[in-house]
Design a protein around this nucleic acid. Structure first.
Lengths: 144, 144
DNA sequence: GCAGGTTGCCGAATTTTGTTCGGTCTGAGG
DNA sequence: CCTCAGACCGAACAAAATTCGGCAACCTGC
């Protein structure tokens, strides 16, 4: 993981569709060597997958909210319960007064309410506190 | 935006590296027609870009925290101030007692503390409340 | 009902890129 | 000094992206 690898990761974050030739030029390597570098980055798990960035509003998920989930039991094994709710985009165990923090995207506030209902149905969940996002300043890739 | 488009977006989220031929087979179209569909999805902004998913821990961002930022002024024009802190991955204006919610990734809790210091330096920021993530259950693409 | 225009698709031609491979260079370890 | 492993280059080869002519379905306004 040297500077070249970091540059490659950075450039691929910005545009994963560019050619290995262009990528190689940017770091001073041939297309073949660049290909090999990227292959190893995948192999090592630094690059998990190549994907696309989708406009949430364009696919019917215009409402974004973060929900603090309170519980009266150990939630460490409940990952699958949260994963079963498709509107949940992220779920984390957190330190602090709440137990779990989830990121939810829905088409409407009515659907958000329905997600809250389904959260309550999970074993151990004793309460929720939803924070609705009014405007997103930005969402961007990791720093390097 | 019909079912075919939705399937294309879904499949590309899972693997943006597959060929148009494979993609076309999955939806019952030729490679050429598939290419044209995807081109239009980009043109319309449904697909914003193609990127890679990077393991945060592998690039020195093993600590994840969400920070509620309190303010005593209108923060609607302060997006650039937050964007100037590279460790901030997301920043949103929120409804509720706090004004802004930011997602922060750092290499250590010391660096997290330094980010909090820089947050306080932003005009109008009157307080912060950081929530450290202990374990991430999952982070996944948008529901289709 | 139909002429003209539009859209979406196919399939093949063409160009560009991905992928593989032999050979060279360099640095580490013995 | 010798040998091995790793990284790179450049060229050859395979595969994919991209373009394009032609066809059919579908509007739309006469």
């Amino acid at each position: 993981m040297d500077d070249i690898d970091r540059t490659l990761v950075l450039r691929l974050q910005q545009d994963a569709g560019q050619s290995y030739a262009a990528l190689g030029t940017a770091v001073g390597l041939s297309a073949g060597a660049t290909h090999e570098r990227v292959r190893k980055l995948r192999e090592r798990g630094v690059i998990r997958r190549t994907t696309i960035d989708v406009d949430p509003a364009a696919v019917g998920s215009g409402v974004l909210a973060y929900v603090m989930v309170d519980s009266n039991a150990w939630m460490g094994e409940s990952g699958d319960d949260f994963a079963a709710i498709p509107e949940i985009q992220e779920a984390h165990i957190i330190a602090g007064s709440a137990s779990v923090l989830v990121k939810v995207r829905t088409a409407s506030t009515e659907q958000l309410q329905d997600v809250l209902r389904r959260l309550y149905a999970i074993d151990g969940v004793s309460g929720t506190h939803a924070t609705v996002v009014l405007e997103t300043f930005f969402e961007r890739p990791l720093p390097l």
